[in-house]
Amino acid sequence: MKLMHTKTPDFVQKMHNAAFKGGKTLVMKGMETVRGGKWASIKTGQIEEITGKTAQEEGVASLEMVILNENPEVMKIVLLKARDKDDNVIKIVRFPGVCVFEPLEETYYEGCKNVSTHTTYTLPTEQ
């Protein structure tokens, strides 16, 4: 699995390294609630490459990377856990399908019109 997916701490480090190789600093936003997990390596490599190249572009002084949930209707599941006096869980009530609407990517454009999309394939759901 190591070859297929990238650990979250490695993903973060790789992006900082890519920017640093271009002589620039990178601020990463949106990772506050990302704990554990694995990142698709194919995307990791592409982001690394473009981050490195962009860092070296003329006029670029610093980089910022914003990580968002792509689907803005984020579905949560809530577990209500009841414990006894010895702290053992004695009951769980599940609440599936709890939605949180999150701001979409345009929120972070800051008026910039120079927006391009980098991908090597289009998912069926994107068509």
């Binding site: 689907n71 803005p72 209707e73 579905m75 399908g97 939605c99 609407f101 701001p103 979409l104 990517e105 345009e106 929120t107 454009y109 759901t125």
Partner: peptide, 12 residues
């Protein structure tokens, strides 16, 4: 596109 809500969204 959204699984549940009848919502449209852009930015904020």
């Amino acid at each position: 596109k959204l699984p549940v809500h009848n919502a449209v969204m852009t930015g904020k």
